[in-house]
Simulated scan of single mutants.
Amino acid sequence: MPSISNKGNKMPASPIRKLVPYAEAAKKRGVHVIHLNIGQPDIKTPKVALDAVRNHNIEVLEYSMTQGSETYRLKIADYYAKKDIIVDSEDIIVTTGGSEALSFAMGTIMDNDDEIIIPEPFYANYNGFATASGVIVKPIASTIENNFALPPISKFEELITPKTKAILICNPGNPTGYLYTEEEIKQLAALVKKHNLFLVADEVYREFTYEGRKHYSILQIKGLEEHAIVVDSVSKRYSMCGARIGCLISKNTEVIQTAMKFAQARLSPPTFAQIASEAALETPQEYFDDVIKEYVSRRDILISELKKIDGVNVAIPQGAFYCVAELPINDADQFAQCLLESFDLDGTTVMVAPAAGFYATPGLGKNQIRIAYVLEKEQLVKAVQILDKALKVYKSK
C-alpha cells in the first residue's frame, strides 16, 4: 500500500472541527447541539452584499484577475484610508479567504525549516499552515492570569535564531479576544526591525473592539513598510464566512511580487464572492455599531454566567467574539467529547472547542476551552447552564 507523506501525518486536526462526528451523532439521537465551537456568527450578512449577487446579470462567469478585481482593490484601499491605514491598490492581493493569504505569506517569506514565532494560544490553523509550508512554529506562551497580554519582548528575543524569519500575531486575538495596545505593537515593530524580521498581523477582527478601545494596525507604523504583512478577510467583518474572500497587504513590493506567483498558481479568487465583498464595503457604520453593541451584550452575559460556576476562570475579551475559559478539570478534550456523547440537559447539549489545539507547546491549555459567543444571549445562558451541570456530572465520575 502506498504511504502517506510525513507532512500529511504531521498535519494537525482542527480543534474546532474534529468533534463534528460526535455532534452529528448526537443530533441523530435527537439531541439539540448548541454550537459554541466555531466562529460562525448568526448576524445577518449586509443586504447590500447579497443584493449585489442577486441582481448581477453576468452571462459568462469568467476568471477574475489573479490579484483580484481592480475596482475591488481600489475600494479596499479606500476602506483602509478611512482607518488611517494608507495603502495603494497595488499593495493588495485578493485571496480565497484569510487562510490563503496566510499560506501565501508563509510561502513567500519562509523556506523549509525556517522558524516563525507566535504568541500562544493562537488560531489553531496557524499550525496547519506552518506544517503545509514546512515551517517550524516557535510558540511563546501568554497566560490567562494577565488576560493573554503580549509576553515580554525579552521572551521573544530569547527565541530568535538564524532560522527565524517572522513573528505572527492575531489582533484582536482568536481564541483569546485580546486586543494589543499601540505600545505592544510598537515594541514588536522595534524588535523585527532590530533583527530584520517580518511582522505578520492577522487583523480580520479589526472592527470588533470594545469599551472605546481602538485597533492599531502594524501598517500605521512609519518605517515598518518593508517588514509589515497584513492578513484580512470579509468573513467575520460582514458575517460572510462562506464568501471565502480575504486579502494580503504589504508595502514591500518584493513580498507582493512573490506572493503574486503563488496567486497565479491558483489562478484567481472567486468572481461572485468578490462582487459581494465589494458591495459589502458600502455597509453603513450603523451596521457595525449595532453588531458591536450586540457582541458586547453577549460577551457580558456569557462572562457573568461563567463566573457563577465554581472553579471556572475566564479571560475578558477586548475584541473579536471569543473567550478562553479555564475549567476545574484535567482534560478538556475528553470533557468536550463527553458533552456530545453522553450528556444532555432536557435534550440539549453544547459543543465547545478544546483549547489545547490552540497551543503549540504540548500540555498547555489541557483544562481550557474556547467559546465563540456568536449566538443569541438566551442560547449562551442555556449553554452555560449545561456546562455547569455537565461539569458536576463529569467530576463525580
Rank of each mutant, 00 (worst) to 15 (best):
163 K>T: 09
129 F>V: 10
318 Q>L: 06
6 N>D: 10
132 A>P: 00
377 K>F: 04
241 C>T: 15
71 T>P: 02
6 N>A: 07
70 E>R: 11
74 L>C: 00
79 Y>I: 00
133 S>I: 01
385 Q>I: 02
262 F>M: 14
205 Y>W: 14
177 G>F: 09
387 L>T: 14
28 K>D: 13
309 I>A: 14
152 P>R: 10
88 D>A: 08
94 V>F: 12
58 I>H: 01
361 T>M: 09
263 A>W: 07
33 V>Y: 02
114 D>T: 14
253 T>K: 09
107 G>K: 15
203 E>M: 11
189 A>L: 03
243 A>S: 12
121 P>C: 15
45 T>P: 04
167 I>N: 06
305 E>P: 08
242 G>S: 13
176 T>L: 13
94 V>Y: 07
92 I>L: 01
265 A>S: 15
205 Y>T: 09
363 G>T: 09
306 L>K: 01
63 Y>M: 08
291 V>M: 02
21 P>S: 01
383 A>C: 07
345 L>E: 08
182 E>L: 12
58 I>V: 05
23 A>F: 04
195 H>S: 09
224 L>W: 10
17 R>T: 13
192 V>H: 06
50 L>N: 03
340 L>Y: 14
395 K>W: 11
150 L>Y: 07
8 G>M: 04
201 A>K: 02
333 D>F: 09
396 S>A: 15
293 K>M: 02
221 I>W: 14
265 A>H: 13
57 N>G: 07
227 H>G: 01
331 D>L: 12
296 V>Q: 12
82 K>H: 13
123 Y>N: 05
277 S>C: 13
369 I>N: 04
89 S>V: 12
18 K>F: 14
55 N>S: 06
240 M>W: 10
26 A>H: 10
93 I>M: 09
373 Y>D: 04
147 N>I: 11
61 L>R: 08
331 D>M: 11
325 A>V: 04
106 M>N: 09
52 A>Y: 07
211 E>M: 10
86 I>M: 11
50 L>V: 13
388 D>V: 12
386 I>G: 11
210 Y>T: 10
229 I>E: 11
88 D>Y: 12
252 N>Y: 14
108 T>E: 14
185 I>D: 00
192 V>D: 03
153 I>L: 13
305 E>F: 00
286 E>H: 00
88 D>C: 01
370 R>E: 06
42 D>N: 03
69 S>H: 09
238 Y>V: 01
89 S>I: 08
380 L>A: 14
67 Q>F: 00
329 I>M: 07
10 K>I: 12
284 P>C: 06
230 V>Y: 01
236 K>E: 15
251 K>T: 01
365 G>T: 08
127 N>K: 13
216 Y>T: 01
142 S>V: 07
352 V>S: 05
149 A>H: 05
258 T>G: 02
66 T>A: 05
247 C>L: 03
67 Q>L: 08
204 V>N: 04
35 H>C: 05
139 P>R: 10
136 I>D: 05
178 Y>E: 05
25 A>V: 03
256 I>V: 10
70 E>L: 05
224 L>S: 05
360 A>G: 00
273 A>M: 11
140 I>D: 03
151 P>V: 15
142 S>Y: 03
322 Y>P: 02
73 R>F: 00
311 G>D: 05
212 G>H: 06
291 V>E: 06
80 Y>C: 05
28 K>H: 11
246 G>N: 02
